[in-house]
Simulated assay, not measured.
Amino acid sequence: MEKFSNIYERACARKGSEQVLMSLINSPVTAADLMLIEDDLWLEEFTRKVFQSGFYWSVINAKWHGFREVFWDFEINKLLMMSPEVLEQKSADERIVRNYKKVQTIPDNCYMIHEIQQSHGSFSHFIAQWPTDNIIGLWDYLKKHGARLGGNTGPFALRAMGKDTFLLSRDVEAYLRAHEIIEGGLQSKKSLGAAQAFFNTLVNESDWSLQALSQLVAFSIGDNQVPE
């Protein structure tokens, strides 16, 4: 397995310099800042990522004001009271992308967040305290207890909200396969465990976040080299 220093040196060369590389890498928010996020915002971001999956993100973003109007700014306490009849009416509203199966994820993920609130005080507190050396465990939790949060959807939502996580982007996957860290299905238990172990090793070598390391690996391979 490559050491952090080797990956770093290659990424610097591909991007043209250490300065350029570091300008492209960013960090997650702190656990303390995560705990300050309103739980309604988690439901909103989960919904955004569910709808962005399979759609042009620009289309969803252009309609997002309409989504917030239709679904009461994703206020969990209000949505918990929503009847199936009201949900069906809202799913046909022209202000949103009318996809009933995806609209159904809103109450489902709302209930997931509410259950966590009952046991942990807040969903943000639950997320903030989850150990990053087992971030795939959090991915699995969202997949099992949430709606349509498997694959890259849950991890992308976590990244968007600031939770430290690596992402299995095309470039990261290409790296992991080229170095025989994973084989077979990307989302298999074996592949996810191997990816987590690889990033945990890099964390120990560098003291970087999973997010920064994920970006570094992506910048060290693939079609992203800075032109001469």
Rank of each mutant, 00 (worst) to 15 (best):
E2A: 07
K3I: 03
F4W: 09
Y8E: 05
G16Y: 07
Q19C: 13
S23A: 15
S23P: 11
S23L: 12
S27M: 12
P28T: 11
I37V: 15
D40P: 08
E45F: 06
F46Q: 07
T47E: 13
K49I: 07
F51I: 04
S58I: 13
G66E: 01
F71H: 09
F71A: 10
D73Q: 15
F74H: 14
L79D: 06
L79V: 14
V86C: 14
E88H: 12
Q89C: 13
V97A: 10
K101Q: 15
D108F: 12
I113T: 10
I116F: 03
Q117S: 07
H120M: 02
S122V: 02
F123C: 02
W130P: 00
D133W: 00
N134T: 14
I135C: 02
L138E: 03
G151D: 07
G151W: 02
N152I: 15
A160L: 09
G162Q: 00
G162A: 00
D164G: 00
R170P: 01
E173H: 04
A178N: 10
I181V: 14
I181Y: 03
E183Y: 06
K189H: 10
K190S: 12
S191M: 00
A195G: 05
L202I: 08
V203H: 02
S206A: 15
Q215D: 11
G222I: 06
P227F: 05
